[in-house]
């Protein structure tokens, strides 16, 4: 079962239509899943998962950063995890990285910097973010745009972060993540 972590500011938010439903549409025929907003997650919910996807959130919603103590479970997770935008930011933060202002809205060109199982080469990706990350030494940088770090992978865990939104463009990334 894949757990989709809703990174929006509250449960059943209006914003979830934009950041959760598109992910659900892509994966619903491929795997079992459930959705929980981050503040309602308990240890037993994590134990039941095979993989976790952390969603994006509204450009003006940074509540999840104030609530970083609710994400301590990420560092103990040993199965595949994919963080999208806000999801990548929180993964990076809990592993000691820092955020850097870097606004990109719309399609941007992303260049792969390190071979990985989710994407390759140069491609256009949909972006909606005000920050990117300066990864800590726990991570490899997998891809960058002209201005921002766009994808990271933990050096020893199957944990990925994508700054762009594969639920909008590059949906095949979900298929690879679900199958791998």
């Amino acid at each position: 079962m894949i757990l989709i972590v809703d990174m929006n500011h509250k449960k059943d938010s209006l914003e979830a239509y934009e950041f959760i439903q598109p992910i659900v549409s892509v994966i619903k025929d491929k795997t079992d899943f459930r959705v929980l907003q981050y503040s309602e997650i308990k240890d037993k919910d994590i134990d039941k998962t095979d993989k976790i996807i952390l969603s994006g959130a509204n450009l003006k919603d940074n509540r999840f950063i104030d609530d970083i103590d609710k994400f301590s479970w990420i560092t103990n997770y040993d199965k595949p995890m994919l963080g999208i935008c806000a999801g990548m930011e929180i993964i990076a933060l809990v592993f000691g990285s820092t955020l850097k202002p870097c606004t990109e809205i719309g399609l941007v060109e992303v260049n792969t910097k390190k071979k990985n199982s989710l994407f390759s080469g140069k491609f256009n990706a949909y972006s909606l973010h005000s920050y990117s990350v300066i990864p800590s030494t726990n991570f490899d940088i997998l891809a960058e745009s002209k201005n921002c770090v766009h994808a990271i992978k933990h050096k020893t865990k199957d944990i990925y972060g994508l700054m762009f939104h594969p639920e909008v463009k590059n949906k095949d990334i979900f298929e690879k993540f679900v199958k791998n």
Partner: peptide
Amino acid sequence: SKRIEIICDKLNLKCINPLWMKD
């Protein structure tokens, strides 16, 4: 969406698209 997001960002407003990517 890009153009409206940029305007909202500039005006410090949330831009919310409830039908985004809907079939």
